[in-house]
Amino acid sequence: MKKSLFTLEHARQLTADTYELVLSGDTSAITAPGQFVNIELPGKFLRRPISICNWTEDALMLLVKVVGEGTKELVRCVPGTELDVLSGLGNGFDMSLAGEHPVLAGGGIGIAPLYGLAQRMLERGQTPTVALGFRTGKDAFYLEEFAALGCRLLIATEDGSLGVKGFVTDCIKAVPECDYVLACGPLPMLKAVHALPQLRGGQFSFEARMGCGFGACMGCTVPTKDGYKRVCKDGPILYKEEIVW
């Protein structure tokens, strides 16, 4: 973990409530896709934990959905704004456990960490299938970006306005040979993916209301089969076999 200043380089609106932010700064503390940053915002006491979409040596990409005052404040920042960021938080995905052909399953804003994950898996010679679920076609974002990576892309929307009608689980069922999933999204989605009988294993990224974000306050602990774990420090990625719903 590192505490340092990042500068907002540009912000781009992707949907009615979702934005892409590119920040410049020292990303050396980031070691794995699926980690997150914790951002201090003016006027807010607690930092806001945001999943890392992708990163380079000196740039950080975030996808942010406006869900409350803090995220509203964050996407309002103008280029040039300096933000105090704790970077490289959490365990991140372990790509070495995912096999040759895993499915990366994302729902809504949960697709964010899957982008950097997919890119790195491709670099490692793995061939992930990306399955993304949205409520409607209007909520969908980052499809071109995922497609440009060159991985197989499956889309589901609840109303059928884009891709197949249904949920991301329906996309995974369409790839019966897939037995390993790396997933990020709302709790009901994670639960449904977790229950798919075809999976021998998987990694699931969880959200929580956090105090510190670095393991000190016990604000975000959840029960697992392996005892209580801190979502911020021992997670946010939990493994299929340890999850208690």
């Binding site: 807010k44 607690l46 929580a208 209301r209 975000c220």
Partner: peptide
Amino acid sequence: QPRIAEMTGGMLNAV
């Protein structure tokens, strides 16, 4: 959970 909430000028916890 949840154990944490925010407020102006601080926070609440029930760890």
